[in-house]
């Protein structure tokens, strides 16, 4: 049996006495697409922040391809293979679309600062290569023609797609998407679903996604975890989760409360 790419066990964090997340366990295999759902404030984004070391866990461990990520800085975690997007889009707004992607390709380039300042051959070669790689990546999202536009000027949906492209440029094993379809219309969402499938196959990566759009979650996730009040209350295939009374209660309870 193949060991999972991402192995999280008993993960938990407290914010000033409040248990924001507790006993979170997940094993993700290569090329798997996992959905993370739950009412607002259930702790979904907290999971992502813990996986990328933005927050330090109070308990538990995270291992990525057998390596413990504890104590690593955020960029080191990214370099070891977890990339993410943000719920409230965080692009380098004033930089061009292609530069956004090329920044994430940074660690793939090896020329030194001296080579850059003196403009030695390795600079030209690797810059040319990374431009080509970035354009290819943008092309996956049909954005190559926008390469020189400032990222902040793109429409909302394109900004979300650019964030995914940027995350992919770090060459991850696991991709975390935080509400990738937020603010998209149904046809854009449909297109996004196809793209997610496509990049999974193309780049051989596992994907964990947080999403409120149930058609998307049910449509592409092979497995779904349901969080409520910082705890996993259910998990299984889309069918199982859909029919689970605990899940229905959590969502309906939430609706009544709203």
């Amino acid at each position: 049996m193949m060991s999972p790419i991402l192995d999280v066990s008993h993960l938990g964090i407290d914010f000033g006495g409040l248990q924001a997340l507790d006993d979170f366990n997940i094993q993700v295999d290569a090329k798997e697409i996992v959905g993370l759902i739950g009412p607002n404030g259930a702790g979904k984004t907290t999971v992502f922040n813990l996986l990328t070391n933005v927050y330090k866990p109070s308990r538990g461990s995270i291992s990525l391809t057998g390596q413990d990520t504890r104590g690593k800085s955020i960029h080191a975690v990214t370099q070891s293979g977890i990339a993410r997007t943000f719920q409230n889009i965080r692009l380098f707004r004033d930089l061009s679309v292609i530069d956004n992607v090329k920044i994430a390709l940074h660690n793939g380039m090896k020329y030194t600062m001296a080579e850059a300042i003196l403009r030695l051959p390795r600079y030209w070669k690797q810059e040319k290569e990374s431009t080509a790689t970035a354009l290819k990546l943008l092309d996956v999202f049909n954005m190559a023609h926008l390469a020189n536009e400032p990222a902040g000027s793109l429409p909302y949906g394109s900004q979300r797609r650019l964030e995914i492209a940027r995350a992919l440029a770090t060459n991850p094993r696991v991709l975390l998407l935080d509400e990738p379809a937020a603010g998209m219309n149904p046809s854009e969402t449909q297109e996004l679903m196809d793209t997610i499938h496509h990049i999974r196959d193309m780049f051989d990566i596992a994907i964990i996604l947080i999403e409120h759009d149930m058609s998307l979650v049910m449509g592409i996730c092979e497995r779904i975890l349901v969080l409520n009040y910082g705890l996993i209350i259910a998990q299984g295939t889309p069918e199982e989760v859909r029919n689970n009374p605990v899940v229905i209660e959590a969502y309906l309870g939430q609706q009544r409360g709203e």
Binding site: S73, H75, T78, F86, L91, F92, R93, H106, S130
Partner: peptide, 24 residues
Amino acid sequence: SRHGRAILSIREDEIAAEASGIST
């Protein structure tokens, strides 16, 4: 250069820069 872009990315958004693998 790639070093310069890393510097610019810090100005734009430090957390996103870290998340893109830049040692800020």
